[in-house]
Amino acid sequence: STMVPPSLPPYFIKGSIIQLADGELKRVEDLKTEDFIQSAEISSELKIDSSTVERIEGSHTSPNFAVVQFSVGEHRTQVSVEVLVEYPFFVFGQGWSSCCPDRTTQLLELPCTKLSVGDVCISLTLKNLR
């Protein structure tokens, strides 16, 4: 299944102020892998999942979009997301990455590397409430 394409939200613009789960404020470009992991540990509802990029291809609907196929979590569930080519994902141990980092840097001024097959991105799921 392909999810609804997200637009390019304002919080990815360089300098945007992000609040971590413990209340600490950081700029979007300064976020580290640990910030997401620690915030998820504090959260009662959300947990971090590893989403490995399995495939990246151009969208059939528009050249501005790409379809990124992920393998999510321990069950390796296949999830496809249609996003703007400049939409940034956070790669474990690496930072912000997009299908077209030049455009991301141009539009958002957010330092960004090229998203590639095999990259492991941070994603969220609901905590299993037993």
Binding site: P6, P9, I17, F70, C121, L124, T125
Partner: peptide
């Protein structure tokens, strides 16, 4: 200045699981 919560930056990839 707007402040955004950390989780808004992370895509919510919620696979439907039967188990």
């Amino acid at each position: 200045v707007p402040v955004f919560p950390w989780h808004s930056l992370v895509p919510f990839l919620a696979p439907t699981q039967s188990d």
